[in-house]
Design a protein around this nucleic acid. Structure first.
Length: 294
DNA sequence: AAGATGTCCAACCGCCGTTCA
DNA sequence: GTGAACGGCGGTTGGACATCT
């Protein structure tokens, strides 16, 4: 039952797209819309594979693509989303308007991944200060081994249990915006011993004080697969996770009386009382009995 | 100045889930 | 119910450009 290749390779252009090809593709999609990628090259008169056309459109030609550098806010969001989702670039990209999964993946691999890697080394603190003194972060004398991205890697030392939510293939195409979600923000005051003025070496987002992970977790629609994976994943105990969200640096963090339960970490009272969630209760692990009691 | 090395990112590849006939 | 077609995803590659020696 062999699978037909996505397109005949013979006679097709490869490599970088020309301005003319871009124009043809853009014009065609403007008239006919997206989709039917396999037939598109023939209809549009392009000597390209349909997948290549799709990729070019999605990653470069789409009118809503945001150009320019990733901002600090965006980087912070990427880091936190990656902490939660792992290498689910499309999901992460879905939370960053105008950014593509390819762009975020590239950005992670070339920028954030390195910082995370440095942090996850045992002598991370001394390494940070050393790096601040180094003109070349990737010293040739001590080249870092390439990161194996074939496995979703938690951006934290190996001793920590994984926090990744491993979703199945189900796509997160909708978002749930809690009307009052801004009220759930957790406020932390965590000191960070890094010179934040250094844009290259500033790794504060990784141990950031402003960790409102809870907020964006709330925004994901948790369908059945998501929930089942979420609950069966190798998550640490949720209270542990929550404590970690508070920064693990202990200093000025007080115990949160309003958010110190597993339940509250994941779900607000409003959500708990919603009929939608209660209808999901039978799908949940028995350890989540509390949901059905709401 | 020139070759070596490193970095970045667009594009490709193969696999997988979904859809549809 | 089955299998082919399709769309989408994540990992990898390769070339252009930048930096170093």
């Amino acid at each position: 039952m062999g699978r037909r290749p996505c397109c005949a390779k013979e006679g097709l252009n490869r490599g970088a797209w020309t301005a003319m090809e871009d124009k043809i593709l853009t014009d065609y999609i403007r008239v006919h819309g997206e989709g039917k990628w396999r037939n598109l090259p023939k209809r549009a008169g392009l000597k390209r594979c349909g997948k290549s056309c799709r990729l070019r459109w999605l990653n470069y030609l789409r009118p809503d693509i945001k150009r320019g550098n990733i901002s600090r806010d965006e980087e912070d969001l990427i880091i936190r989303l990656h902490k939660l989702l792992g290498n689910r670039w499309s999901l992460i990209a879905g939370r960053l308007p105008g950014r593509t999964d390819n762009e975020i993946k590239n950005y992670w691999n070339t920028n954030i991944g390195k910082k995370v890697q440095v942090l996850s080394q045992p002598s991370s603190t001394s390494t940070i200060s050393n790096r601040n003194n180094s003109s070349n972060p990737q010293s040739k004398q001590n080249p870092s081994p390439p990161i194996d991205h074939s496995v979703a890697q938690p951006p934290l030392p190996n001793t920590e249990p994984s926090r990744l939510v491993r979703t199945k293939a189900s796509r997160c195409t909708k978002v749930f915006i809690r009307p009052d979600h801004q009220n759930v923000t957790i406020h932390h005051n965590v000191g960070v011993g890094v010179a934040a003025s250094d844009p290259v070496n500033d790794i504060s987002p990784f141990i950031s004080a402003k960790d409102d992970t809870l907020d964006f977790m709330m925004d994901f629609e948790m369908d059945e697969n998501f929930l089942s994976d979420f609950l069966n994943t190798d998550f640490p105990p949720l209270h542990e996770f929550h404590n970690d969200l508070k920064g693990d640096t202990t200093d000025t963090v007080t115990s949160s009386s309003s958010l110190d339960s597993n339940q509250n970490l994941l779900l607000s009272n409003e959500m708990l009382q919603s009929s939608d969630l209660q209808s999901l209760a039978p799908l949940l692990d028995p350890c989540m009995d509390w949901l059905q009691d709401q």
